[in-house]
Amino acid sequence: MSLSLKDHRVNRTADRGPESGKPLQHTSRRGSQRGGSSIDVQRKKLLVPFVGPAFVLYTVLFIVPALGAVWISLHKWAGSGPMKFVGLDNYGRIFRDQLFISSFGNTLLLLFVVGAAIFILAFALTLVLRDMAGKKIARNVIFFPHLINALVFGVLAGFIFNPGGMVNSLLAPLGVTDPPKWLAQDNIFPLIMVTLVCTTTGYFTTILMAGVDRIPPYYYEDCALAGATAFQRLRYVILPLTWDVFGTCAVLWTISSVKIFEIVWVFGGSSGAGVPPTQSWTAAVYTYVNAFSGQSTPAYGAATASAVLSLALISVLVVLLRRAMRRDAVEF
C-alpha cells in the first residue's frame, strides 16, 4: 500500500520535472529501498549497538515503571501486601474527589497563569537586557534564584511573612497596625505563585537571551535604516527568529510546572510536621499524600492513578503546544 502510494508520488514529481520520463530514476529509487546504499546498510548495522544500550536503559528505567504504574493504578494496594484488582475504580474516585479537582485546578493555574507571567517578564527582560551595559552581570543576577533550592524559599517565607516577621515589622512604623494575614491558608497558594514567577523568570530569560543573541546585528541595522519602530523590530525580526527557542521553553515549562511539588510542600505544613493545607495542593502533592503521607494507610492505587492522569495531561499539552507553535524554522 505504502509502496504504491510512493510510486505514484515519485511518478508525479518525475512528470513535472524537466528530466521526466527517465525510467532509470524510478527503478533506482525502488532499488535503494530493497538493498539500500552502502551508507544505509552501515547505518542499519550501527543502529543496534548505538541506540541499543540507551534504549534498554530507557525502557528499564522509564517505560517499564510507567507501565507498572498503570498496572498498579488498576488496584487497591497499600504498597506491600495483597493487591486487589478494582479496574478503573481509582480513576472514577479521583474524578469524583473535589480535592483532586481543586489540586488539578492549581496545577493548571501554575501552568497557564504563572507560565504567562514568566514568559511576558522573561521576554521583556530579554529586550531590556539586550542593549544594557553590564548585561552579563545582570543575566547572572536574575538567573541566581533558580539555583537556590526551593526549601530555602519555604523557610524564608516564615521569616518574612510570619505575624512577627520582616514584612509586618517594616509595616508597623508606617502605621499599619492590622496587616493582612499573609500566611493564612487561602493566601499560601498565591504566595507560591509569586515565588515561582520570581525564581523561574531568570532561567527562561537566560535561554531566550541565548536565542536573541544569535540574531546577526545586520538585521537590526536594516531595521534602523528602514526606520522600523521598536515594536516592528520585535514583531518582524526578534519574534520570528527566536520562535523555535520560545517553543522549546514553553514545552520545558509545561513539563516542569505539572511536577511542581517541593515548594508547595515546604510553604505549608512545614518541616515534615504535617501536610500542607489542601488549598495549596497541586496534582503532584495530591499524588504524594495518597501514597506517602505517613498518617494513614498508603493508597498506591489512587496515587498512581493521579500520576498517570498527570502524565496524560503533560503528553496532551505538549502535543498541542508543539502544534500551536509549529512554524517553519527560519534559517539564518
Binding site: 497499600a78 480535592l99 491558608q185 495518597n290 498518617q295 493508597a299
Partner: peptide, 24 residues
C-alpha cells in the same frame, strides 16, 4: 493519636481540612 484512625486518606483529605476551618 487521632484515636488510632488510619483509614487511607481520611485524616488528610476529609478530617484535617474541615477541622482546620473550625480551629482557624
Amino acid at each position: 493519636q487521632n484515636d488510632g484512625v488510619t483509614f487511607p486518606g481520611y485524616m488528610e483529605k476529609v478530617f484535617f481540612p474541615k477541622d482546620d476551618e473550625l480551629f482557624l
